[in-house]
């Protein structure tokens, strides 16, 4: 594997508009139930700010993907750029990958009885375009980045956020810029 592509999500910029979710649905005409990408709201107690904070998550194209390890039909492959691609034509709907992923990102499509997930718009990337969710993000909170030491050493770049499973489980290829702690002035 020559590099590892992934997402950088900036919770300071994200307004929770769910445009990324919709762009993903539009691009692939996904059925109603599976959500390849989903916007979550952070618990207020984790960031004591008088405002709602969000993060957006799809498949994290982990460095050590559990879905790929457990899949009995080799429906998952990891490309040279680190993207974990799921081939629905090989899937037999055993749902083992849905049990193994701590982020619940491979999801069963109950109509097709097969699992689906984000493939990081690899066909768009191969054409030099941005993934649909990144291209649709109005505040520019979601970016496609190369996950490497240079990124991890930047100030403010986090490997996880409160409310997320430990990154030690699968080494997810997502980084975060968390909400900044604001100063609260109390008026009595």
């Amino acid at each position: 594997m020559s590099k590892q592509l992934g997402f950088l999500h900036n919770s300071e910029k994200c307004v929770g508009c769910r445009g990324c979710e919709m762009a993903c649905k539009n691009e692939y005409q996904i059925d109603a139930a599976p959500q390849w990408r989903k916007v979550f709201q952070l618990h207020e107690e984790d960031f004591s700010l008088p405002t709602r904070m969000f993060f957006s998550m799809a498949c994290n194209h982990c460095a050590h993907p559990e879905c790929l390890r457990v899949c009995p039909v080799e429906a998952y492959t990891k490309r040279d750029d680190g993207i974990v691609v799921h081939d629905p034509n090989r899937c037999i709907g055993c749902r083992l990958c849905t049990m193994a992923c701590p982020y619940d990102r491979p999801q069963i499509n109950s109509a097709k009885k097969k699992v689906e997930k984000c493939n990081l718009c690899y066909q768009r990337i191969d054409n030099g375009e941005q993934p649909a969710c990144v291209a649709a993000c109005i505040p520019g909170a979601l970016e496609l980045v190369e996950i490497n030491d240079i990124l991890d050493q930047k100030t403010g770049v986090l490997k996880t956020l409160p409310g997320l499973p430990s990154p030690k489980l699968t080494t997810p290829s997502i980084r975060f810029i968390g909400p900044k702690q604001g100063k609260q002035i109390r008026r009595d």
């Binding site: 390890r69 009995p72 055993c94 083992l96």
Partner: peptide
């Protein structure tokens, strides 16, 4: 009956290298 597509259950033998499900089958 656990599988979404039992008609292609034979494919479950494809990933003996790391999948315990393949090894089980």
């Amino acid at each position: 009956f656990h599988l979404g597509h039992p008609e292609v259950a034979y494919r479950a033998l494809a990933h003996l290298g790391s999948s315990w499900l393949s090894r089980e089958i």
